[in-house]
Design a protein around this nucleic acid. Structure first.
Lengths: 249, 249
DNA sequence: AAGTGGTCTAGACCACCTT
DNA sequence: AGGTGGTCTAGACCACTTC
């Protein structure tokens, strides 16, 4: 008789999720929640599956992290400001310590898992470099001990092979300083930004909690005469970064 | 006795998810999968809950969309290129049709839900404008009939109140053209970009499938004499956009 | 009305972390 | 070893979409 009306009551898992949010709000970053999933289920008179579903929702919203076997932990964060315009200005890499330093204010930064190879077939992203063999640099960046970025760079072997660019440590000023010394100074850059959910391997390498997106930044370095000499694809923990750009009207 | 070793077998739901991926891969965007969750569960000899869990995984990866009561649908997409540098150049808004037009190549674009109000207390994002009352413009953008962006702008009432900026239709060239006419031409812009999971209201307004992140772009418009005259916060369907910026070395 | 996804239970058992 | 999260079942019942 009465017309079926849309459900207006929240589901149980939503009420439990709201409660969990409250619990997490009062805690500092990384602090463990004072309840377990089982307790939460009992408190609300629901089954364990429902408590878990609620926890997943709150985790997806970025407020807690659910760790297998360990418990639930509050999550807050201060993202790192990554300044797209300033950080790529010539003086940053010409004499400075490299462009990563332009970001990480006073925070401990590291690079690990550096890997340099030569490959024949560049992937799609690197097609702009031309058809020849390429030097590929892969590495991972950490801030305050936490992995926040994966980066892969492609350069034509004709330019980079046998130079310091093909070594793990590229020296002061990094790759762009070396390119300048070799007569291929970047004159301008283009950055393309998208966001998406991470692939399993990325989740693993960045130790991402479930439900955390990544930013994918593709940078092209172009010389004054219009040649693309380097392409870098960066995958960033979205919660760890704010990307900032200046634009002239 | 034997040391507990890590699980190396995939879970059932992972195998079902892999199968679902295959199924989706062969279909065009929006096409309905030829199986239901129940069938999928039977095919793999698992319970319905497991089939659902698998579907959620594949949905989170952006390959399908699970629609309540309707079935599962393949998802592919062609994101829109949003050019940060070119689109904010002076000639785009001085004489052109407004900056949105700089993006949407040949695709049908619309604005709906325009709402203009005056408010006393600007939120945190708008603090740079100063303490006075502000004109607030909220609207939603659609491409090809699909909502892809929510935007909210704040301007000081001392500048915008009583002008065309405070009306739903700001006229040719949009807000920035009007500001220029009023003697407050933007000279430069700053854009800050983050990615995150959407709030429930955003998921609703953008009709986002579960597991889809959004890009949040905060733009500040600054005059030649250094005053911040407008702040816009945009929330974008991450799958619908590629943000692109040019940088001089 | 029929079909399809979604929530929920109660309980078994497995996997991971901490100590 | 004990605690805590994770997968999975079998089935009941609810909610949304389509016809």
């Amino acid at each position: 008789m009465s017309p079926r009306q849309r459900r207006d009551q929240p589901y149980k898992y939503q009420r439990v999720a709201a409660d969990l949010e409250q619990l997490a709000a009062g805690l500092a970053d990384g602090e463990r929640l004072p309840v377990t999933l089982d307790e939460l289920a009992q408190m609300h008179g629901v089954s364990a599956a429902v408590a878990l579903q609620a926890a997943r929702e709150v985790e997806a919203a970025g407020l807690i992290e659910v760790r297998h076997g360990a418990g639930m932990f509050a999550r807050k964060f201060t993202p790192l400001l990554r300044h797209g315009s300033r950080r790529l200005s010539r003086d940053q890499w010409e004499s400075g310590p490299g462009i990563q330093a332009a970001d990480a204010e006073n925070r401990a930064r590291e690079v690990d898992r550096i890997e340099v190879t030569q490959e024949q077939q560049p992937p799609l992203a690197a097609a702009a470099l031309g058809a020849g063999p390429v030097v590929v640099r892969r590495r991972r960046y950490l801030i305050d001990g936490r992995p926040v970025q994966l980066a892969t760079s492609w350069l034509p072997s004709s330019i980079a092979a046998g130079t310091r660019i093909a070594e793990p440590d590229t020296g002061p000023g990094g790759t762009y300083a070396r390119l300048a010394e070799l007569g291929h100074a970047p004159a301008r850059f283009g950055e393309d930004i998208t966001a998406r959910m991470p692939l399993p391997a990325e989740r693993e390498a960045l130790a991402l909690p479930r439900g955390r997106p990544v930013l994918e930044v593709t940078r092209r370095a172009v010389t004054a005469d219009g040649r693309t000499i380097e392409i870098t694809v960066m995958v960033l923990d979205a919660a760890a970064y704010v990307l900032s750009y200046d634009i002239q009207a």
